[in-house]
């Protein structure tokens, strides 16, 4: 066995010992007294679990508060077993946690939990997304009314639209620090626009036609395609522009007459 292979094997065995259910036999690779070596290995085992759980807790603080410490810890352990971090930057760990929670049998009494988690991940991503210089309003004005339906927007990288059948924004707001956890609405469905403005992430509820319009624009539809049945999009577009959510546009090419 080459030196590189020996190192690879030692590391693979060490890593396996840190997640193994029982005694992995790895203590035989360690110097010193066996019982102490096993207890020392357990320090690493707890640290790995704490680091992964901590990364999830910081991305999903509302979920953590909703389900409590023990439940969250167990969910995080099971999630890490299925989906261990594949990125060395733990701030990026856990995009799959909402889907895991949505399918988690122990959370079946909280059917909205996965959607609350989706909102939290959108918030988390919005915090880290690229900055953007903002829309050139002068250039947009020069497109003129006739060209407007062909305009397609590029969104600021922080913008997310989270659509849920549940009152996720009310639940999220009720579980912010200083709130007692009681949502001020029991009814959904919530369509939540998440964006970053002045270095802060913000969230707002959209009415269904506005959410449909924004969703279509985000998918790359032109203004003409996004505003079905002549729906007046000026207020919706104004909100996107005022929040710095539009980063650029293309005016398209006029259809030859």
């Amino acid at each position: 066995m080459s030196g590189a292979e020996a190192l690879a094997r030692l590391q693979a065995e060490f890593a396996a010992a840190l997640v193994a259910e029982g005694d992995s036999g790895f203590a035989s690779r360690l110097a010193g007294e066996r019982a102490l070596a096993l207890r020392r290995l357990a320090i690493y085992r707890r640290a790995v679990e704490a680091n992964r759980g901590g990364a999830l807790r910081s991305a999903y603080p509302v979920v953590a508060r909703l389900v409590g410490e023990a439940f969250f810890g167990e969910a995080a352990r099971r999630f890490a077993r299925d989906c261990p971090p594949d990125d060395a930057d733990l701030n990026r760990y856990g995009p799959g946690f909402p889907a895991f929670l949505a399918a988690y049998p122990h959370a079946s009494e909280l059917p909205w939990l996965g959607d609350v988690a989706r909102l939290e991940w959108a918030w988390h991503e919005a915090l880290m997304a690229a900055d953007s210089p903002g829309l050139d309003f002068g250039a947009l004005a020069r497109v003129g009314e006739a060209g407007q339906p062909r305009v397609r927007f590029r969104f600021h990288a922080a913008v997310r639209l989270v659509r849920s059948a549940w009152p996720v924004l009310a639940i999220w707001e009720a579980n912010q620090p200083g709130r007692d956890g009681t949502p001020d609405r029991e009814e959904g469905a919530d369509d939540v626009l998440v964006w970053r403005e002045d270095e802060r992430v913000r969230a707002a509820l959209l009415a269904p036609p506005e959410a449909d319009f924004v969703a279509r624009l985000m998918e790359g539809a032109s203004l003409g395609e996004a505003a079905e049945d002549g729906w007046d999009f000026s207020a919706a577009l104004g909100r996107l522009a005022a929040g710095g959510m539009l980063a650029g546009f293309s005016a398209g090419t006029p259809v030859p007459s």
Binding site: A12, F14, A15, L18, R52, P84, P85, D86, L90
Partner: peptide, 11 residues
């Protein structure tokens, strides 16, 4: 890290 899985710990 081992095999692309990250342990988040300085081993």
């Amino acid at each position: 890290s081992v095999g692309g899985t990250h342990l988040g710990e300085l081993l």
